[in-house]
Design a protein around this nucleic acid. Sequence first.
DNA 1: GACTACATGTAAAAAGTTACATGATTTG
DNA 2: CAAATCATGTAACTTTTTACATGTAGTC
Lengths: 173, 173
Amino acid sequence: MNSQDVILGLLHRQPRSGYEIKQMLEMPLSFFFDASFGTIYPTLAKLETQGFIVKESVIQEGRPNKNVYSLTDAGRAQFQAYLESPVEKDVFRSDFLVRMFFGEYMDEDTLIDWVRDEIRKSEEGGKQIRHMQEQLPPGLPPAKTLCLEIGAELNAAKTRTLQETLRKLTELS
Amino acid sequence: MNSQDVILGLLHRQPRSGYEIKQMLEMPLSFFFDASFGTIYPTLAKLETQGFIVKESVIQEGRPNKNVYSLTDAGRAQFQAYLESPVEKDVFRSDFLVRMFFGEYMDEDTLIDWVRDEIRKSEEGGKQIRHMQEQLPPGLPPAKTLCLEIGAELNAAKTRTLQETLRKLTELS
DNA sequence: GACTACATGTAAAAAGTTACATGATTTG
DNA sequence: CAAATCATGTAACTTTTTACATGTAGTC
């Protein structure tokens, strides 16, 4: 799974511009996939030369023009090929946990600050997820709601464990 | 946080070879950081030319010789600089969840297979984590145990949510 | 007047993956 | 005798990040 696959997937339902793709990636998808403009625009250009998408320039008033891309048949086939390829395993990379792992080389006050910060970020993330869940239209298929549910559950588990760790750390000192 | 930082951290406690570093990355660290030999060996070479580590060849009997690297003062300073740099946010990338997000373009039987597979993998991972937790010496600082605890909690939350989703998906059909 | 949103791109550099290449020893 | 473990490395490639570059329109 890479940017190509995800972008093709996002163009499946309707044509979009690079800027709109970035916005789609912001919300529900951002929990398990991310891409910057520096990835999106070159990827769109590459997909176009490969014949998987076609560009149409849309002139807008009061706003810059935008390039709207839509899937070709070849693009649809390419996306299906991705769906039929083996599922890759998840990647979880955490600077915070690496630092905890090397905690012995850092003073305990800083460690506690890191945990507090992580709790704050985690609670903030939880709020965002709940907000999104509330805005979701009812009657969505379980596969679609899973993405947010799993996000919410992972977030809750993480927050709980961090709070427990903070308690242990502050008890010690 | 990158391979350089993690390798310097692993060499902090004792000198190690590239092969031994790979083994360290296998166990507790692999949940939140990963690197292949194709990353480790070039990184070690780079760290050496930068003067952060020094190599010593150890001749072994019955086994290939190995290059054991140890931290220099500059290396220790470099690692401290990493610890003092801002904490980067976690990266979670999931091919499985991307597929669920695009579930509408795939038949439900395949979706169910994906979920079942993910549950199997998740349960397998949980077993490994519990095994590691049992083997951990007692009296470790909370920061160190957090790494496995958070892994266990995230794993449990994920497994639970997946099982619920599977139930919903199979109820429908 | 500063900032945010809209909008698209490029170029250089860093980082990482994959496959290849080699070879000894031990275990089943 | 096949496979796994120990052990190190290279080369080509892919991917991604970061910073730069540009410009309009609306809001505070």
